[in-house]
Design a protein around this nucleic acid. Structure first.
Length: 462
RNA sequence: GGCUGGAUGGCAGAGUGGUUAUGCAGCGGACUGCAACUCCGUUAACGCCGGUUCGAUUCCGACUCCAGCCUCCA
């Protein structure tokens, strides 16, 4: 029984899909005007774990994550670079797919783009105008009349009159109410845009998700997710638009992942602490980054720092060290063990990855303890460990490959093998001085040698 | 100012009305030529003040501090 924290009700709820065994999930994706940053990665990984785990639990998940491929920032970037806005979006969509692949993020089942759903947006806006939830301003803009939706604020727990205090009144205001938000922006004929009943223009940001989500999943679906910073106004507005247009509940359950911080500061361009995924992956193993992103609960803030990366790397080293001597491939995963039950209980409880990790580390201890005396059981436990790790998208690499991989510096593994063999010979000759000298050379290369019963192995020190 | 969430051992980070989270680090021991890896043992915590209770880190209330959102934002 999977329980998920619902932002709407502010409590954990049992997952009861509309259709038994099937989960329909919509997540707000990325606006593609630049490379993905670590905050994006956090969101992508958080929902990747949701999808992987629900599938692990036997659910048939339909995962939709949109791409915002038209908006002011994209258009500004296109002008800046003197290129077509589609050149900008094509480039960053391709880059996003590369980043996702590197971080072992599964493809959504559909990746709808805003520009491919203008028609649906227009017809939704028409319905909103017909029902007096929206109005056309003099210049062709269309606004949503927030006061016409009594439930406005139910997701972010804001009261309409409280919003008035903070609302910014813009110069040349065309809105009837400062809290209203734009559904359709009029545009000059030479700008990017589409024809509409209200004139040439382009859609507002919020309407695209309402249109694409209902188009792909129906008026009502199971889970809607996104970053916590999207809760207001984006998700609040999605609810207002969709529920006013369809008269039905939009998403039953809302999930929000917590923010990513950099060295204990909010990540922002002004602080110049903005890391892109590809920058980070030049210096760190993708799995280490991914593991860092799931080592805290998805709703908590995560701090990204050199220290937290080292911790993540060490945790993975412990796993892979344990798996290294096992024969996983020919082992059958243990079923129904107390470990699996504890793991499932942890993950069923709102995807509690830290608690799941504690179970997995207990498995590591157990495997290390018995691996000499009961190789068979150790292999089975190892297979289980890999299977459980798979439900979170980790531990799928070859242990030796993980341990000997290095990022950034080129490693000459043949040379290392030669040094290790030479040291082994020196040890066989009981020439400790020479053996230690070679080890010093290896240490200088960031290589740690480990002498085992079956000979010496090496790994790259994180 | 409003709303939401948080304050746990040296660090990271779960959880629980009474019993070891877990990882890293520390300490003692085993293993090792010495290490590394691993194992065994071990130290150490629940912001502050009240209340409920036989008993609270865990429930309730006040307080202090922190973060996020209220503007584009994953």
């Amino acid at each position: 029984m999977v329980k998920i924290y619902n932002t709407l009700t502010q409590q954990k709820e049992e997952l009861r899909p509309l259709e038994a065994g099937k989960v329909k999930l919509y997540v707000c994706g990325i606006t593609v005007y630049d490379y993905c940053h670590l905050g994006h990665a956090r969101m992508l990984v958080a929902f990747d774990v949701v999808v992987r785990y629900l599938r692990f639990r036997g659910y048939d998940v339909t995962y939709i994550r949109n791409i915002t491929d038209v908006d002011d920032k994209i258009l500004a970037r296109a002008i800046e670079n003197n290129e077509a806005f589609t050149d900008v979006t094509d480039r960053y969509i391709a880059a996003m797919h590369e980043d996702e692949a590197a971080l072992s993020i599964l493809h959504p089942d559909q990746e709808p783009r805003a520009t491919a759903h203008i028609e649906e947006m227009v017809s939704m806006i028409e319905r909103l105008i017909d029902t007096d939830h929206a109005y056309r301003a003099e210049n062709g803009d269309v606004y949503y009349a927030v006061t016409r939706f009594p439930d406005y604020g139910k997701l972010s727990k804001k009261k309409l009159d409280e919003l008035l205090d903070g609302a910014r009144i813009e110069v040349g205001e065309l809105k009837r109410d400062p809290r209203d938000f734009v559904l359709w922006k009029s545009a000059s004929d030479n700008a990017v845009g589409w024809d509409s009943p209200w004139g040439y223009g382009r859609p507002g940001w919020h309407i695209e998700c309402s249109a694409m989500a209902t188009c792909a999943l129906g008026n009502t679906f199971d889970i809607h997710g996104g970053g916590s910073d999207l809760m207001f106004p984006h998700h609040e507005n999605e609810i207002a638009q969709s529920e006013a247009a369809t008269g039905e509940t939009f998403a039953k359950l809302w999930m929000h992942n917590g923010p990513l911080r950099i060295d204990d500061e909010k990540m922002s361009k002004s602080l110049d602490n903005f890391f892109t995924v590809r920058e980070v992956l030049q210096h760190h193993k993708a799995e280490v980054v991914r593991n860092l992103l799931i080592s805290s609960h998805y709703r908590s803030p995560i701090n990204y720092s050199e220290q937290s990366l080292v911790q993540s790397a060490k945790a993975l080293e412990r796993f892979y060290h344990c798996l290294k001597d096992l024969d996983i491939r020919n082992a059958k995963s243990l079923t129904n063990s107390r470990f699996e039950k504890a793991f499932v209980a942890a993950m069923d409880d709102d995807f509690n990855t830290p608690e799941a990790f504690s179970v997995m580390f207990e498995m590591v201890s157990e495997i290390n303890r018995i691996k000499v005396t009961d190789q068979d059981l150790a292999n089975q436990l190892g297979a289980l460990l890999v299977r459980l790790g798979g439900s979170m998208g980790i531990l799928q690499a070859e242990p030796a490959a993980f341990l000997q991989a290095s990022v950034g510096a080129e490693i000459d593994s043949a040379e290392i093998d030669r040094l290790v063999a030479a040291r082994d010979q020196a040890r066989a000759d009981k020439d400790w001085g020479k053996a230690d000298e070679i080890r010093d050379q290896l240490t200088a290369l960031n290589v740690v040698v480990e002498d085992g019963a079956a000979g010496s192995t090496w790994r790259i020190e994180a």
